[in-house]
Amino acid sequence: MLQTQQKIFRKFYYPVLPIAHLQDGPKGVKLMNEDIVLWLDEEGKPAAAVDRCCHRTAKLSKGTVREGSVVCPYHGWAFNRTGKCTYFPQSELEDPPKVYKIAGYHCEERYGYVWVALEDPVTGIPEFKYSDDASFRKVDQFYEVIHCAAFRLMENSFDAAHVAFVHQNTFGDINNPIPPKMDITPAEWGFETYHEAPVTNKLNQQVKTINVDEDETVRKAYGRWYLPFIRQNTIQYPTGLIHSIITCATPIDDKSCQLVQFALRNDTEADVPAERVIAFDRAVVDEDMDVLETTEYNVSLDVRRKVENHMLSDKPGIVMRQMLLDLFAQYGEEEVI
Rank of each mutant, 00 (worst) to 15 (best):
R305K: 15
A270F: 03
I245K: 02
P273I: 03
D271T: 15
H243R: 08
R282K: 05
V303P: 07
L259R: 04
E308H: 12
I245R: 03
R265K: 07
R224M: 06
D254F: 10
R276H: 15
L312Q: 13
D302L: 13
N298L: 07
V260Y: 02
L264N: 08
N309A: 15
I278V: 14
I252L: 04
P273G: 02
F262N: 09
E296A: 10
E287M: 00
P228R: 11
D267G: 05
I278S: 01
K306C: 13
N233H: 08
I235R: 06
T294I: 12
C248A: 15
N298I: 11
P251V: 09
A274Q: 07
L292P: 02
E269A: 04
L301C: 05
H310V: 15
P228A: 06
W225D: 08
Y237P: 05
A270H: 08
L264D: 10
T234A: 09
F229K: 06
V285P: 00
S244L: 10
V260A: 03
N266W: 08
I230Q: 11
I252M: 04
N266T: 05
L301W: 14
D288Q: 03
S313E: 12
T268R: 04
N233A: 09
D288F: 00
I246A: 01
S313I: 08
V277D: 06
S244D: 14
H310P: 09
E269D: 07
I230Y: 10
I246S: 03
T268I: 12
T239K: 06
L241V: 12
L227K: 08
D254P: 04
S244K: 08
C248P: 02
T250A: 01
C248N: 13
K255M: 04
D286P: 06
C248F: 06
I230A: 11
R276I: 07
I278C: 01
A249P: 01
I246Q: 08
I230F: 10
H243F: 12
K255G: 05
R282N: 05
D267F: 13
Q232E: 14
Q236P: 03
A270Y: 03
N298Y: 09
I246L: 04
A263H: 07
V307D: 12
L241P: 07
V285L: 04
F262H: 10
L301M: 12
L227Q: 12
T239D: 14
E293M: 04
D314M: 08
L241Y: 07
E275D: 11
R276A: 11
Q258I: 15
G240C: 11
V291P: 00
G240D: 10
A274I: 05
L259Q: 09
Y297P: 02
Y226D: 10
H243S: 14
I242V: 15
D271R: 05
Q236R: 14
Y297C: 07
S300L: 11
D253H: 07
E296F: 13
D314S: 10
W225S: 11
V285R: 00
I245H: 02
V284A: 07
D302H: 13
V291K: 00
L264T: 11
E275F: 06
T250N: 01
M289P: 02
Y226T: 12
V285N: 00
Y237A: 03
P228G: 04
N233C: 08
A279H: 01
V260T: 15
R276C: 09
W225F: 13
T234S: 14
S244Q: 12
D254K: 07
T234Q: 09
D267P: 03
V291W: 00
P251D: 07
G240K: 04
P273V: 01
R231N: 14
H243P: 00
D286C: 01
